[in-house]
Every structure is written in structure tokens, then in C-alpha cells.
Design a binder for these strands. Structure first.
Lengths: 335, 335
DNA sequence: GGTGGTTTCGAAGATGTTTCGATAGCGTCG
DNA sequence: CGACGCTATCGAAACATCTTCGAAACCACC
């Protein structure tokens, strides 16, 4: 059945070329000691030349990469694509599941168990203790991305350094001379949102700027959330000169509200977003924002789930990937 | 054992021709893994050559909502979320599959068959005749969204009225007094792209405006495609006063190029996009665009696939959903 | 019970690893 | 000088996996 000398290099072919026996080549590959330096050199050179790859580590086409659910509360943001891209790259086969699209009783945990899934990734979503227990009973691992509540210590989760992100955004604005800095968070009870606002507070605190509760607002993470809260903020008697929005979409809403109010950005109002969606670069002005490595978060969650599915231990139950400020043109010195 | 080539090809006859056993052929048809690549190729070629079609329907495994693949070439656009939302709403359970994320040899048809999927929705992607036959052999229906090539008459597909869309966009510009109207299409060979450009030509024709080939460009559907082609167009000695872009993302690229060239939109240059992504409303200026009902297209594709999976006949093999012009602020009368 | 296809299971083969003994080289001691 | 002992190097053979594939049992249906 073997034919080709031209095909994939095997230990045997290398051995023949080097004029040694097969086991000797094996020893070289595995770093065993009982090989003469000269022989080792000769074999290594040939291994290199033939570009030998051991069979075990060969890109084995995953015969049946595990099928897992990715549960979104709703598929309503470009956000989702970024995550999905990351997750697909982790080597899982994923079923997208949108709670919003489900018939309202839709019990995703049941269908997940019944559907033969091997696990789940839950995105910014509340996972109840009951759900957790049921999943545990069926030995189905879950990884949460950007958990809404602080998850129990036994629920692995992936997030971003929201606190630092909020801090960095706010410090950036403080450095530009702003004093009246507003923040628009996501829904009040979201963990990520609270962390960002805490970062904001910490930065103000450090700069010795008193926090004005009137400048802290909450809205949904979408355009309208940003738009409406910005409208309110801009109508304040002593309106803010800068707004830190909880998401890029919100920030676009803020831009819109500013435009309607006849304010120029960043001339009259500086705006910082959060996420760094691809389109943040193309808005006008290009949006200064806190980059959240969404695709990496997806990939990380995928890899963690893959580990859990194959019964490996996780290095850590909670992983936070670094955010970083991306200064663009929507922020400027205080007018 | 009868030997004649005359009758309907059976697994046994294919097996004989390939010099393998019957079970091996069965495994190839069902995408099982334990077949050597060379053998698989040989058998697939013969299945093709003999145009094998199985007799009995395979025992249907799951009664609950069928699991189907949604195959993207790449998950690289907010576009994708819209479609996904629509598809999830149709009551299918969907597995997202990105060809880009696959190791390049990745034979998606095989993993689809082996993975027990009940069908597939292929998005703007070339589906080869061979793939089609293989899916047919396994009784797996496929629906194509926005097919790249004109699909065979037996491949159900969902699209939008691209021609009318192109026509509407161009007529809108003509009505605004524009005469030098450029168009940026997607990749040259995309069906949807060609249809839009034909609509553009038809509108020009109707208005008695001679078509200038220099004003017809092709680029990828993303921001950079639009940006680069717009740069070229704006450097023309007799530059266009309006650009019809093949996608919203491209249109954002055009806006960017105009900004860099110091042109105001819509003052100096009118821009029309295509798709009506959510963010088209929030760009500045808000983008006049041709609305493509992406979520509806997804839902329609889902419903068609659902019908096919449950063995119902389709009312029509090819469905085109209506596009409509959404005039916003990126177009104005010719300067 | 025949036809058409699927599944299970083990045999055969291919590839790599490990063990262990053969041998050569070299120094040392009688 | 030659016997002896020691070590470094290497390959034969046994072992361990993993892949590939078919015999035979099985299933569904007519």
C-alpha cells in the first residue's frame, strides 16, 4: 500500500536518506541522548530539508469537533459577529441560539441537552442557578462571555478589563482638560457596565474631580440608548463637555444627539465609546473608543469550552482580556 | 451477482468499480471518517460519474427542530447578523460555519453530512456542482442566499431585487440632476453585483445618459473596496458628482474618500449605498441607500429550507424580495 | 426473503517508540 | 601486549498506536 518516496516524509524515508536506521531518527526527533553528535546533525538537517512532521501532531482533521450552543439574548448588534468569528476559529462547531427568537417558553437548557450538544457559551446573559444545576447534572460545561451578574466561582467566564477600560477612557478625557464628564452605562445591573462606571469614578477621584450623579446615566447598549441619554445630558443647565458611552453604538447615538443639538464633535463635545467595532474607525469623526478584543474573547471562550468538553482542567475560571484606549478624532481638549 | 452497467447504479456497483467493498462506499456517501483520502476521492469520482442517487431515505434521527448549517464565506460584516437573526426566527436550529475559519482543506459538505445536519443555507458563496450532487445524494436540501453564480434551476435561492435596486438608486440620482454617476460594484463576477450594475445602466439608458465605462468600478464589498475605488474616481479629470456604491460598507468608504478629498457630501458628491444596515441611519450624513430586507431574506430562506426538510414542495425555486430606496441625507441636487 | 443500505467489530498495515543487546572505541591494569 | 571493563552509538525486534477497510450482522422496507 505504500508507494511514494515523493509523498509525505516518514521516519523511514529520512532514515534511508541519512543512512541510519529508523529508531535512530526517532531518537533524534525525541531528543534521546544516545545518538552521536555528527549523526544527530545529519539527521536534523534531513528532517529540516524534508520538512518532516510527526504523524501524531499532524493537523488531524477533527473527526467530530464538538457541537456547542452559543446563546445570545438577542442577535442585534455587530458585536455578535465579532464574537462569533472568534468562537468559530477555536475549532468548535457552534449552534447559534437567540433567546429573543425563541418562542417565549423556549427552554434553551432542555433543547441543549436533548439536542446532544456538548456544552454552551452564554453571551451577556443571565444564567440562573437552576439552569446551572441542570447543566451540571448532564455534565454539560458552560462558559459565559461578559456575564451579567457576578457568576458563581464555579462558572468559568471570559470578559474584558472593563474597570481599566472605564478608567482609561475617563483619564484620557481628564487629560484633555475636561471636568464635566458624563458617563452612559448599559443597563444598571450589568456587571460590565458597573465595572466601567466604577473605573470612571476611580479616574475622577484620582483627578480630584467630584462625581456628579446627574452625569451618570443608564440606557440600553444600542443607538437609541445613547441617543436618548445624550439628549437628556445635553439639556442639562451645566452640560457636560465630554461623554463616555458604554458601547460604540451608544456613542454613535451620542454623536447623533450632538449633531442635532448643533454641537460639533469634538469641538464642543468629546465622545468616547467602548468596544472598537470595525465601524468605529469609519464614523465621522472617527470614534475614540476603548478596544475590547471581541474576537479574542470569543476564541478564548471557545478554547476554554473545548478544554472542559475534553475533560481537561481550566487554568483559570475567570479570564479577563485587556482593553486598550484607541484615541481617534472624537475627543479633543476642553473648549 | 449481476454485473451490468445498465441498471440504476447501486452502492454495490460503485464499490465494484472502485475496487472497494460496499460498506466503504456507504461510508463515503455518509461522510464517515474512516476512509483514506485517496479512496474517498476515487469513490466520489465514481459516484459522480455514475450519477448515483440512493433509493431509500435515510432514517430520520431527530424529530425536533432540524439542525442545519449556515455557511458563510467569511464572518466579516454586520450583514451577517441581520441574516442570522432572520434565519433563527424561522424556527431552525443553525450551526454557523465560516469557510474562512476552516482549515483550508476543510470539506464542509462532508462534515455537514457526517454531522447529522438536515440541510444547509449557503450565503453568497459559490456552491460547486459537485457539492450540490453530493448533498443531493444524501438527501440534504440546500437554499442559497444571494447566490454568486446563477444557480441551476433546481437550486432554491433567495435574493433581493438587485436590478430594481440598482435602477431605483440611479433614477434617484438622475432625478436630482446628476449626469456623471459612477457605480462601484462588488467583485465582478457576483451575480448580485452584475444585476445592480445592469439596473444602473438601464436607468441611465432610460434617462438618455450615455454610460461612461470609466465610471464603472469593481471592488470588494468592504470599506476598503469602496474607499479605494472612490479615490480613483475622484481623481478623474471629469469626476462624477454622484456615486452608487455596491454596499453600505463600501459607501462608508466613499464617504471617507470624499472627506479626505475635501468634498462635502452631499454638497459636492452624492452617495447611495446598498443594504440599509442599521448603521446607515447613523452615519454622517445619514446614508441614502437601497434597503435590502436581510432579516426577511434570512427568514424566507429558513422557511424554504424547513419546507424542504419536511419533504414539502417549494412554491418557487427562486424568491426575490423587494428592495426599496431609502432616501436620507447623503444625496442632493447636482451642485 | 430479497433488495438496498448501515453499523459494528476486528484484522491488517502503517507509523513511531522503546527495549535491549551488539559492537566498536578507548583507556587501564596485569 | 593483551585481557578487561567501561561507555557511546546504533539497530533488531518487540511494542504501541492509529488508520483503513471489509466480513458479517443488522435494519427497513417491499
Amino acid at each position: 500500500m505504500h508507494e511514494q518516496t515523493a509523498g509525505r516524509p516518514t521516519l523511514a524515508s529520512i532514515a534511508a536518506a541519512a543512512g541510519v536506521s529508523l529508531p535512530t531518527v526517532s531518537k533524534v526527533v525525541n531528543g534521546k541522548t544516545d545518538v552521536a553528535p555528527a549523526t544527530r546533525e545529519r539527521v536534523l538537517a534531513l528532517l529540516d530539508q524534508y520538512d518532516y512532521v510527526p504523524l501524531a501532531r499532524r493537523p488531524v482533521p477533527e473527526p467530530d469537533s464538538p457541537l456547542v450552543d452559543v446563546v445570545f439574548t438577542a442577535l442585534d448588534s455587530p458585536w455578535a459577529v465579532e464574537l462569533l468569528r472568534g468562537i468559530t476559529e477555536s475549532g468548535l462547531e457552534i449552534v447559534v441560539d437567540s433567546l429573543a427568537a425563541r418562542p417565549q417558553d423556549g427552554d434553551w437548557v432542555r433543547s441543549l441537552i436533548a439536542g446532544g450538544r456538548r456544552g454552551a457559551i452564554v453571551v451577556t446573559s443571565r444564567i440562573t442557578a437552576a439552569d446551572q444545576r441542570r447543566l451540571g447534572r448532564s455534565h454539560l460545561p458552560v462558559v459565559v462571555i461578559d456575564p451579567v451578574d457576578m457568576p458563581g466561582p464555579d462558572v468559568p467566564s471570559v470578559g474584558a478589563t472593563n474597570w481599566s477600560g472605564g478608567m482609561a477612557a475617563t483619564e484620557h478625557l481628564v487629560e484633555l482638560g475636561h471636568r464635566r464628564i458624563a458617563v452612559i452605562g448599559g443597563p444598571e445591573d450589568y456587571l460590565c457596565s458597573r465595572a466601567r462606571i466604577d473605573g470612571y469614578r476611580a479616574a475622577l477621584d484620582r483627578a480630584g474631580i467630584p462625581a456628579d450623579p446627574a452625569l451618570v446615566r443608564h440606557g440600553n447598549f444600542h443607538h437609541d440608548g445613547g441617543y436618548e441619554r445624550a439628549r437628556e445630558l445635553l439639556e442639562l443647565p451645566d452640560r457636560p463637555t465630554a461623554v463616555f458611552a458604554g458601547s460604540d453604538e451608544q456613542a454613535f447615538g451620542v454623536l447623533e444627539a450632538a449633531r442635532q443639538a448643533g454641537l460639533s464633535v469634538p469641538g464642543d463635545l468629546s465622545v468616547v465609546g467602548f468596544d472598537d467595532l470595525p465601524m468605529a474607525r469609519w464614523s465621522s469623526p472617527p470614534l475614540t473608543t476603548v478596544r475590547q478584543p471581541l474576537a479574542d474573547m470569543g476564541r478564548m471562550a471557545g478554547r476554554m469550552l473545548l478544554d472542559l468538553v475534553s475533560g481537561r482542567e481550566l487554568a483559570s475560571q475567570r479570564v479577563e482580556l485587556a482593553t486598550s484606549l484607541v484615541p481617534r478624532a472624537s475627543t479633543a481638549r476642553r473648549p
